[in-house]
């Protein structure tokens, strides 16, 4: 009794201090992983070093096939790393069986059990932990309420819409109150409108339950909207980890700059600078570069004007609206304010 009491007070103390001193939940140390396919061996992860704080929303961003799913599977224990360790709240779980890890995953295709009802699906994790039936039923009800699926408990998964399935998958993972929740492109299969709505719901849930999220997405807007920090993966490592602001405005490498938000890469002497399309000025006082318009296109509420510089480099400028007073083939002067060009390490042409 007394023991329980002290642990509760310790917990609330810890909560108070959360803002000042974040607690590390998950630590990845020098994770490497190769796959051997027939005779060819590919090194997918080349030493991932990273630590995540309690309650953080981390997004993994990277090109298709760069190893995002593999990394999540290593954390979940569904795949084993070649070298390196995974630490969960300080405990080394590298060799721990996946069913004993306090980590849950939301699979890309949801992987709902087709022969179980919504309630059975959601309650499965508690059932494996031998939680009394009554308690499971109560918790499942709470979860259903949280994901706004009250009344659906008896439905089978194949009688649900995509968005509903997705919510069941999230509820099924979250009911276990894992220390870390891994989400592999959970909204990837939804249409844009539903995706925007689900993003808000997910973020709300994450804040409410204060769960640590590691989230994979291909959608940069999603990453920027939802994350506390974004990790850009490239060539087997985390090339840059930072807040959405840092990643967007202070890219460290040319890969990060062009992958997130398609920044222009401007080469001058031996240096490379990232310049965002919206920062490119046209025919203003700062403009010193001679350019020719070679293409104009309208996409995503923006007009994109592609210029060719006299030395052959291509620079895109974007403007709101559907047209701009420049024709294809016309000459112009372009440039940018000094502080909107960020010098980056070149690792890509």
């Amino acid at each position: 009794m007394e023991k329980a009491f002290t642990s509760v007070s310790a917990f609330s103390k810890c909560n108070e201090g959360r803002i000042k001193m974040a607690k590390t939940v998950l630590e990845l140390q020098q994770i490497t992983k190769s796959f051997t396919d027939k005779t060819k061996q590919t090194e997918v992860l080349k030493g991932i070093d990273f630590s995540i704080n309690e309650g953080e929303f981390i997004t993994l961003l990277g090109a298709s096939g760069c190893g995002k799913t593999t990394l999540l599977r290593i954390i979940a224990g569904l795949e084993s790393a070649d070298t390196g360790s995974v630490l969960l709240e300080g405990e080394d779980i590298t060799k721990k069986e996946p069913y004993l890890r306090d980590v849950n995953m939301v699979f890309q295709n949801y992987a709902l059990f087709p022969h179980m009802t919504v309630a059975e699906n959601i309650g499965y994790g508690l059932k494996t932990k031998k939680v009394p039936k009554k308690e499971i039923a109560t918790k499942v009800q709470e979860m259903l309420e949280l994901v706004q699926l009250e009344g659906y408990e008896k439905r089978m998964p194949d009688k649900l819409s995509g968005g509903q399935r997705q919510r069941v998958a999230i509820a099924r993972a979250m009911i276990n109150q894992p220390k870390v929740l891994l989400l592999d492109e959970p909204l990837g299969a939804l249409d844009l409108k539903l995706r925007r709505q689900m993003q808000l719901e997910l973020k709300r849930l994450q804040k409410k339950l204060n769960t640590t999220f590691i989230y994979i997405t291909h959608d940069q807007e999603e990453a920027i909207n939802m994350s506390d920090r974004i990790a850009v993966m490239h060539d087997g490592v985390f090339e840059q980890v930072g807040t959405p602001n840092e990643i967007y405005y202070q890219p460290e490498t040319s890969y990060v700059a062009s992958f997130v938000g398609n920044a222009n890469l401007y080469h001058k002497a031996d240096a490379v600078y990232a310049v965002r399309a919206e920062s490119v000025l046209i025919n203003e006082t700062e403009c010193t570069l001679d350019a020719v318009v070679i293409e104009k296109s309208f996409a995503g509420g923006q007009l994109r004007i592609l210029f060719a510089l006299s030395d052959g480099q291509k620079i895109t400028a974007s403007r709101f609206g559907i047209d701009y007073d420049l024709k294809v083939g016309e000459q112009a002067k372009i440039g940018w304010k000094e502080d909107s060009a960020v010098r980056v390490i070149a690792n890509e042409n």
Partner: peptide, 13 residues
């Protein structure tokens, strides 16, 4: 992947 989901949710093999 359903089997992986079950294992992930705490079921032994």
């Amino acid at each position: 992947s359903l089997l992986e989901a079950a294992v992930d949710l705490g079921a032994n093999r």
